[in-house]
């Protein structure tokens, strides 16, 4: 649904986006993460055919962004960084205007507007002027606008920013539902827990370059190292940690430990963990729990950035 090949954007002497490659199939949510000024917005604008790439190519919903800009824009719903509403208009007029722009019939405009406003809990505010909307309401209405023409691809910049937790959940649920319906999403966000919960794929962009791209588990494997397990026992470990290290040498590495717990990293948890449990039971140790230490997207993100910095990301920034 979204394909970018060596996509680049040069502003005079500034390389805003540097050979970005993306492949986002239908029904996928891609979270595009990165610090401010990394090139996220420029990438999204190129994928919306607002900005022309300086080099490379991209296809969105099957259309080349350079050859068929109007078809690309008809196939995407965009939520920009700023909601950008016309504050003197009422919601119903506003949605009717965008419905006309997308050439929806009068019946279609009315139906889609009402359905979406209801879905996002805004029906009560249909007749209100947009200047009277709260920040969260404005953000939701901007989302309604992006979804109005039922586009196969949605490009959303911080979709839940300024929203209360309940509204944010409404939006997340809507995204998940639409994803099941084979809609494709590209979400740029700084909310990493949201990205982790929504995205099938994650791309991290820095200094205009994609420095990491894959599913959460792929990135975790690549950047967060081996899985860390925590074993909790009843009573006191009493040298069991050393016993584990000796017995499973080469299969696991003992990390931190306490009176009744020990952490170890393991390359093949599905193979080694059952052996560890059998060994503990055989040694007369009562296991309370054996659970993986959860790794967050934040850990991975910070690790990715750290590695990029070590590999000369700062130097590339200088060269941009």
């Amino acid at each position: 649904m979204i394909e970018a090949h060596e996509l680049s954007k040069l502003y005079d002497d500034f390389l805003a986006v540097d050979r970005v490659n993306l492949d986002v199939p239908a029904g996928t949510v891609l979270a595009l993460l990165g610090p401010n000024g990394a090139g996220k917005t420029t990438t999204v604008r190129m994928l919306t055919s607002i900005l022309a790439p300086s080099a490379g190519s991209a296809r969105v919903a099957g259309y080349d962004v350079l050859k068929y800009p109007e078809k690309v824009r008809a196939s995407v719903g965009v939520l920009p960084e700023q909601h950008g509403l016309y504050e003197r208009m009422k919601a119903v007029e506003y949605l009717d205007f965008f419905g006309r722009v997308y050439r929806l019939s009068a019946a279609e405009r009315k139906k889609r507007s009402l359905d979406l406003m209801e879905r996002f809990g805004l029906t009560f505010a249909l007749g209100k002027k947009l200047g009277e909307y709260s920040k969260g309401m404005k953000q939701k209405l901007a989302l309604v606008r992006a979804m109005l023409h039922d586009p196969p691809v949605l490009l959303l910049d911080e979709p839940t920013s300024a929203m209360d937790p309940q509204s944010a959940k409404l939006v997340r649920d809507a995204i998940i539902e639409l994803q099941r319906d084979q809609r494709t999403f590209l979400i740029t966000t700084h909310n990493l827990s949201e990205a982790q919960s929504l995205a099938n794929r994650i791309a991290i962009i820095r200094h205009g370059r994609i420095i990491a791209n894959g599913s959460f588990s792929e990135l975790a494997r690549r950047f967060a190292g081996e899985q860390i397990m925590e074993l909790r026992v009843r009573g006191i470990l009493n040298g069991f940690a050393g016993d584990l290290a000796h017995t499973f040498a080469g299969k696991l590495n003992i990390g931190d430990s306490g009176d009744d717990w020990v952490q170890y990293s393991v390359a093949e948890p599905s193979e080694t963990n059952p052996q560890v449990i059998r060994h503990a039971v055989g040694s007369g140790v009562d296991i309370v729990s054996l659970a993986p230490i959860s790794r967050t997207l934040e850990d991975i993100y910070l690790q990715v950035v750290k590695e990029d910095e070590a590999q000369g990301g700062a130097a590339r920034e200088h060269l941009r």
């Binding site: 296809r59 099957g62 068929y68 109007e70 078809k71 997308y102 050439r103 023409h149 586009p151």
Partner: peptide
């Protein structure tokens, strides 16, 4: 890439619009 409306799940309204 197959660009038919069906395979891409593109709303026919969109195609009607853009191909107008």
């Amino acid at each position: 890439m197959n660009t038919s409306a069906k395979s891409l799940d593109i709303d026919p309204i969109l195609l009607e619009t853009t191909d107008a």
